[in-house]
Every structure is written in structure tokens, then in C-alpha cells.
């Protein structure tokens, strides 16, 4: 049963990767961004499904880190410098947000 689930997931991901590499007629940087979009989809799946609030917070944290990588790739392939500013600001803001979420999970007040 477990092996069947592993196999179905493997076939799903491998199929997506083969479709992106072989059949889509887009440029190479867009293919890299599509790979990152698969990561976003997986973490959003955890946000939707996660049984407890802690799972959703973890997925949100991972989502924030992935956005930094996405901004970096955009900076390379458009040649605009200011995407790196967005990346730094997003990273710091998401760090503060995750700390607030962790405090909230712990059941304490924010000013402690």
C-alpha cells in the first residue's frame, strides 16, 4: 500500500518534469521558474491539508523562503537590480511573521 502511494507520487512528479523539459515550448529561464512553482504547489498543499496549526505555520515559513529564491531568479533573468531589494525585505518580514506565529502557538502574549 505504502509502495503504491510512493509509486503514484513518483510517477506524478516525473511526469510533470518530463512535460516541462520535453514538451513545453518556452525559454530555459521560464522552465527553471516552473520547477520552483512545483515547490510552491507542494507547500500550498501542506497549508491546505495540514492536520494541526503547527503544520500550516511550517508550510508558511517554507513558502516565505521559496519566494526569496524566486525573486533571485527573476533578478538574474530580467537584469533588474531591485528584485534583490524585494528578496531581502521579504526575508526579514517573513522571519518576523514566523516568530509571531510561533509565540502565538506557544500561548503567550506578544510583549513577553
Amino acid at each position: 500500500m505504502k509502495f503504491i502511494r510512493w509509486l503514484s507520487g513518483f510517477i506524478f512528479l516525473a511526469g510533470l518534469i518530463i512535460i516541462i523539459f520535453a514538451f513545453l515550448k518556452v525559454s530555459a529561464p521560464s522552465k527553471l521558474m516552473l520547477f520552483l512553482l512545483i515547490c510552491f504547489l507542494l507547500s500550498l498543499f501542506r497549508v491546505l491539508k495540514g492536520p494541526t496549526a503547527a503544520d500550516r505555520s511550517v508550510a508558511t515559513d517554507i513558502f516565505g523562503i521559496l519566494v526569496i529564491g524566486f525573486c533571485a531568479i527573476l533578478a538574474v533573468y530580467t537584469g533588474k537590480d531591485w528584485y534583490m531589494d524585494i528578496a531581502i525585505a521579504w526575508g526579514l518580514q517573513s522571519f518576523i511573521g514566523v516568530l509571531a506565529l510561533a509565540k502565538f502557538l506557544e500561548g503567550r502574549h506578544f510583549d513577553e
Binding site: 494541526t52 496549526a53 503547527a54 505555520s57 511550517v58 515559513d61 523562503i65 526569496i68 533571485a72 534583490m84 528578496a87 531581502i88 526575508g91 526579514l92 522571519f95 514566523v98 516568530l99 506565529l101 510561533a102 509565540k103 502565538f104 502557538l105 506557544e106 500561548g107
Partner: peptide
């Protein structure tokens, strides 16, 4: 940005683990 990430990611993981265990 690499420096910030290496400093902040373990801290937020630690805070989330502790919060999950306390909750």
C-alpha cells in the same frame, strides 16, 4: 541575503518546534 538567511532560518525553525511542542 545569504547571511540573513543562514542566521534567521534555524532560529525560526527552533521557535516553531518549541511552539508546536508547547501547544
Amino acid at each position: 541575503c545569504i547571511l540573513f538567511l543562514l542566521l534567521t532560518a534555524p532560529v525560526s525553525a527552533h521557535a516553531l518546534a518549541r511552539g508546536a511542542h508547547k501547544s
